[in-house]
Amino acid sequence: MDDELRRLDRLTGTWKVTGGVTGTTTYEWLDGGHFLVQRGVLDHDGHRVSMTEIIGRDHPFGEEPGTEIKARAYDADGNTLDYVYELDGDTLTIWGGFKGSPGYFRGTFDATGDRLTGDWVYPGGGYHAEMERIA
């Protein structure tokens, strides 16, 4: 596992999610430490969202690993969503689709690392979001 990916270790554990979306989500490493998996059951405006997200570097067979930390989320409704993760100090940015996208989450970890507070921003909307580690 490389240093940039390893910094996402601060997401491991189970989190209570509040704000524009509510529920719980859990992050854990797959064996080998090359991919972080998020599994969650969330409520977004009265719609239940059951999802799994795989976070890591693209590494197609026979090629070098990619330079960005990418993610793909799959939900129970059949949707797939792509993201790019960036962690700079205590600030986490999750870009929707590509780095620099107009849709993104930007949040800051508190001093203990057990609370992440920020906002999802996207054209025509957005919402405040908080996560608190509960396990």
Rank of each mutant, 00 (worst) to 15 (best):
A135V: 11
L42M: 06
G89A: 06
I94D: 00
K99S: 05
R10N: 04
G126E: 06
Y122T: 07
I55F: 05
E64H: 00
A73V: 11
W29I: 05
D88Y: 10
V49G: 05
H44Y: 11
N79S: 15
D110S: 02
Y104Q: 02
F98C: 05
D110P: 02
K99D: 00
D114L: 12
R133C: 11
D119I: 13
D2W: 13
V21G: 02
A73L: 10
G89E: 07
P102F: 03
N79M: 12
K16L: 10
P65W: 10
L81I: 14
G89Y: 05
D110R: 03
D82N: 15
G32N: 14
E53I: 06
L42D: 11
T26Y: 07
P60A: 09
G103S: 13
Y104P: 02
H128F: 07
T67Q: 13
V41M: 06
A76R: 11
Q38F: 07
E132R: 14
F61M: 04
L42A: 09
P102L: 06
D110K: 04
R133L: 13
G96S: 12
L5A: 05
R6S: 12
A71W: 01
L116M: 08
L92M: 10
T12K: 04
A71R: 04
H128M: 14
D45P: 04
E53N: 09
A111G: 05
Y74V: 03
H128N: 13
P65N: 14
A73R: 12
P60C: 09
I94L: 01
D31E: 15
G103N: 02
R106V: 02
P65I: 13
D114F: 04
D75N: 09
D31N: 14
T12L: 09
G56T: 00
D45F: 08
V37N: 04
G66R: 09
W120M: 01
L8Y: 00
I69K: 00
D90P: 10
R6A: 11
G107V: 02
G46M: 13
I134F: 15
T108P: 01
L81H: 13
G62V: 02
F35L: 08
G23Q: 02
M131V: 08
G20E: 08
M51N: 08
L5P: 10
G124I: 14
G97V: 03
T80N: 12
G103T: 08
D82E: 15
F35W: 10
L116C: 01
I69V: 08
G97F: 05
H128G: 10
F105M: 00
T18H: 03
Y122N: 14
G125A: 09
V121E: 00
